[in-house]
């Protein structure tokens, strides 16, 4: 079992290496993608600096908290798209019967599919997230927790997208649904938690669990609470399990296809 996990991890890293090698074939696009993602993210932070120049407290967050929130959110998406960049394409691959080549490989099908693509802009997100951690306040403890939480966050976002993406085994247009869910998560988790009330808060712990991906980690970084820490870890494991179960249950319905295709 442990050997199997080790082999899969080695395979994930190898896939990323080859994905990056592929992306680096065009040096200019590779570098501009990274730089523009950092600039793009920075532009949003400037907006928040302006907001906080008018008001000291927004939804219970100060500027420093928003800096950390953006750091966690950027890092979360960086991990998702750096390691599991094909998650957004999962429903399309299923609908168009394009997962055949992954099914004949002796590796975990879901991991092979998800790791078959890397978004270069995710490197920009990752660099930006650590810059924000430095701005928030660097310490070994913060660095370790921050790294752990962007990994758990990345896994949570990937798992949610996989669960919705796996609906493509049963329904058409699951790609739109997955896109909407990912977009919603991305939109909400860059705003202070306190500005959301009532039913929306329930959504954050269920269908779009950004509380476990970003808000709880932020609170733990500010003030460590063992209960919250355990909740994040357990939820990450739980949602990962659900993602695998959803995919493999759906896989039995997979109908393949005869479309001409290329792996680019």
């Amino acid at each position: 079992m442990l050997m199997e996990v080790k082999k899969e991890l080695k395979f994930i890293l190898l896939s990323i290496k080859y994905n990056l090698a592929r992306e680096m074939t065009n040096k200019v696009t590779f570098l501009t993608n990274i730089i523009f993602m950092i600039l793009n993210n920075a532009a949003f932070l400037i907006e928040w600096i302006i907001f906080f120049s008018i008001k000291d407290n927004i939804g219970g967050y100060g500027l420093k908290d928003v800096v950390l929130l953006w750091g966690l959110a950027s890092g979360t998406y960086a991990i998702c798209f750096l390691f599991f960049g094909a998650v957004q394409e999962l429903p399309n691959l299923i609908m168009n019967g394009k997962i055949d080549s992954f099914l004949v490989q002796p590796k975990n099908v879901l991991i092979s599919i998800l790791t078959s693509k890397t978004k270069v802009s995710a490197i920009g997100d990752l660099i930006y997230s650590y810059i924000l951690l430095f701005i928030y306040g660097f310490s070994i403890k913060n660095f370790l927790f921050f790294t752990l939480f962007i990994v758990t966050g990345g896994i949570i976002v990937t798992s949610i997208a996989t669960i919705f993406g796996s609906l493509a085994f049963y329904i058409t247009k699951a790609d739109t649904l997955t896109g909407n869910v990912m977009g919603t998560m991305l939109n909400f988790d860059t705003y202070p938690e306190g500005i959301f009330k009532g039913a929306i808060r329930i959504l954050f712990y269920t269908i779009i669990p950004i509380s476990f991906a970003v808000y709880m980690p932020l609170n733990i970084l500010k003030e460590f609470e063992i209960i919250k820490f355990i909740a994040v870890i357990i939820f990450t494991l739980f949602i990962t399990l659900i993602a695998f179960l959803s995919f493999y249950k759906g896989l039995k319905k997979y109908s393949s296809g005869n479309l001409m295709s290329a792996r680019v």
Binding site: Y18, R22, S261
Partner: peptide, 14 residues
Amino acid sequence: GTVFGQKEQLWTHL
């Protein structure tokens, strides 16, 4: 081993 004439398994950029 499998080869599907209509589907590429190789990475085209490599």
